[in-house]
């Protein structure tokens, strides 16, 4: 639990928080099965097979250029063995969350460009995590994917106010966070942090969502690496022009994050190349045609 998320002025969004979407059953079953040290591939396969949409996406994903396989994968069990359990969880969470908000076509945000920005942040976060040798890069992908989820909640639960937020950010060239503070009195980082806490995602992901604009000083008591990685990944996605986050001002950079990551210019160049390549493939898998 992150206590700061619940402090401050009572807000429209938080008052209606009991309506917030929940993660689909398939993800929850898969997650609890994988967390059991005695699970079998057969159990995982059975869960996946019960959902034809997820089965199709898994096969599409594993046969995409992301995996560059010589022979096409035709069975679910082979697909699971190829991608691995962590990537499987990440894929199901990604498709579930995107589907959850698919109907949000008339709000202040373009859903397509919003997810492009989030997938860019997710891909960059995973790349950065790999280069610094962090454990479980897939968890960084999820943190990047969900870092701006609070914006979708504002868009859904407070559409008029959020339209005002986006208009203010555009008119005065503000970061979306600054405009949210002026109009709502709180920001998407707080709402998003609250949501991923409700979903029971890891404390590291909760912190990354809640503090991706203000990562804190590393200490031994709290996992802070994810928030530094997602902070840098967010700026990389914006710099590459991947989608649109709603901000009309480049977010302030916290220099500590770059000191924590300790990467060179060469690493950064590699991260940019790989991020762009991955986003192209992911957008094609998840949204069909992707205009570069």
């Amino acid at each position: 639990m992150i206590p700061e998320l619940l402090t401050g002025e009572p807000a429209l969004v938080v008052e209606r928080i009991h309506d917030l979407p929940t993660l689909p059953e398939v993800y929850q079953r898969l997650s609890s099965t994988i967390d059991n040290p005695f699970f079998s591939l057969w159990e995982i396969e059975r869960i996946i097979r019960q959902d034809p949409v997820i089965t199709a996406r898994l096969l599409h994903f594993v046969n995409s250029p992301l995996y560059s396989l010589n022979t096409p994968v035709a069975t679910v069990s082979e697909a699971i063995r190829t991608v691995g359990y962590d990537a499987l969880k990440q894929l199901i969470l990604t498709t579930s969350v995107i589907d959850m908000f698919q109907q949000e076509q008339h709000g202040a945000l373009s859903i397509h460009t919003f997810w492009e920005h989030c997938l860019g942040t997710a891909a960059a976060a995973r790349q950065l995590a790999s280069w610094i040798g962090a454990e479980c890069p897939e968890e960084f992908f999820v943190a990047g994917l969900l870092h701006d989820i609070g914006k979708l909640i504002h868009n859904h639960y407070a559409p008029d106010k959020f339209r005002t937020v986006v208009a203010l950010a555009t008119a005065e060239r503000l970061t979306l966070e600054a405009a949210e503070q002026k109009v709502l009195g709180f920001s998407h980082t707080q709402t998003g942090g609250f949501l991923v806490h409700r979903w029971g995602l890891s404390p590291a992901i909760q912190r990354a969502v809640a503090y991706h604009h203000s990562p804190s000083v590393p200490d031994l008591l709290s996992p802070t690496l994810h928030e530094h990685v997602v902070h840098c990944a967010d700026l990389i996605s914006i710099g590459l022009g991947l989608g649109f986050s709603g901000s009309c001002h480049f977010p302030p950079f916290v220099p500590l994050s770059w000191e924590v990551l300790r990467l060179s210019s060469g690493h950064l160049a590699e991260v940019l190349r790989a991020t762009q390549r991955e986003v192209t493939h992911l957008m094609t898998i998840l949204f069909g045609d992707y205009a570069e």
């Binding site: 840098c232 009309c248 950079f253 220099p255």
Partner: peptide, 8 residues
């Protein structure tokens, strides 16, 4: 626009 002049 408005970006910090940090090396990163």
């Amino acid at each position: 626009y408005g970006a910090d002049q940090h090396v990163f």
